[in-house]
């Protein structure tokens, strides 16, 4: 394959990674932004989303599309409710103390991971995509008669991957609208800026916290349901999304939603492109190096504002 089509393929694969990463990292950024809680268990809520998606779709043998639609509607709600429960029973009792909640979420991480191992088992299991047509993609080439389209061999993407990119875009837009235009979003942002004043103006801060923690985990689960037909569900799959989400959230600026999405695009696309042209290891090395540089030279993140 020529360089051009090859780059396009790498970019599309990177865009799928970026889309899922943007969803996962937004959940982490939201929880950190509003609650100042570093949720180390975030990757496990992602894993739980994938495993539950396998479980739910396994009820609908033979009707893969219906099963998948059911999973995408219910699984994020189940995971979100579970996270809200963890908030009320664990984090609230620690008064959301930044250090103790880190230790507590490490505990939640192991509980979720080991319970999954004990019930679901150590196998990686696939989920059938609801649709999976391979679409050949055209490229342009210079001929004697001018520019013309042709279909290079191997340059293709599945319809499902395109749908993942589209779905993530729509969900992120919806999240943005909720945060900036709705009363609920206003409550979350007021709580984020001054918890005590939010309380003094009638915002039920504890309920907002439970909701935000549930929403953050639900976003991770949603990302996992979208990616599981491409990746398979496994009880240890939460590590990578957690690391990448942290990378994205640090580069984007802690708690900044637009920054998180831009950083996810940067990391996702460069991960796709560098993995294809060089190696996936180099992609991870460069991403972590970027985090180190950001932390040294611009600790508020590339797009974040410096907080007092």
């Amino acid at each position: 394959m020529d360089f051009g089509p090859y780059l396009m393929l790498a970019t599309l694969e990177g865009a799928v990674t970026a889309a899922v990463l943007a969803l996962t990292a937004s959940g982490l950024a939201l929880v950190f932004g509003v609650m100042r809680v570093v949720n180390v268990a975030h990757g496990e809520f992602f894993m739980l989303g994938a495993v539950l998606a396998w479980w739910v779709t396994s009820w609908f043998e033979g009707a893969a599309a219906f099963g998948f639609a059911f999973a995408i509607l219910t699984v994020p709600l189940i995971v979100g409710a579970l996270a809200a429960l963890a908030d009320v029973t664990v984090l609230k009792r620690l008064s959301y103390d930044p250090e103790r909640t880190i230790v507590a979420t490490i505990g939640i991480l192991y509980i979720l991971q080991q319970v999954t191992l004990m019930t679901y088992g150590p196998d990686a299991r696939p989920v059938t995509p609801p649709f999976n047509t391979r679409l050949a993609l055209p490229w342009v080439e210079m001929t004697e008669t001018g520019l013309s389209l042709y279909w290079p061999w191997g340059l293709s993407i599945t319809s499902y991957k395109l749908a993942v990119i589209a779905a993530a875009t729509v969900i992120l837009l919806a999240l943005w609208i909720v945060m900036t235009r709705s009363k609920l979003g206003l409550m979350m942002r007021a709580t984020e800026q001054d918890r005590e004043m939010a309380l003094a103006f009638g915002i039920p801060v504890e309920r907002v916290y439970a909701l935000v923690f549930g929403l953050g985990a639900g976003l991770a689960a949603l990302a996992a349901v979208l990616i599981v037909p491409i990746q398979q569900a496994h009880y240890l799959m939460g590590g990578d999304p957690l690391l990448l989400s942290f990378i994205v959230v640090i580069i984007g600026g802690l708690g900044s939603l637009p920054g998180t999405v831009l950083a996810a695009l940067l990391i996702g696309l460069s991960d796709g492109i560098i993995s294809v042209f060089f190696s996936p290891t180099l992609a991870k090395i460069l991403a972590t190096l970027l985090v180190a540089l950001v932390l040294v030279f611009r600790p508020q993140g590339l797009f974040g504002a410096r907080r007092a």
């Binding site: 206003l186 409550m187 001054d194 939010a198 103006f201 915002i203």
Partner: peptide, 17 residues
Amino acid sequence: RLFGDLTVGQNLEVGRF
């Protein structure tokens, strides 16, 4: 102790909750 990142209108809206 205003909600500094919110607009004047949004600060008043929080007051009206």
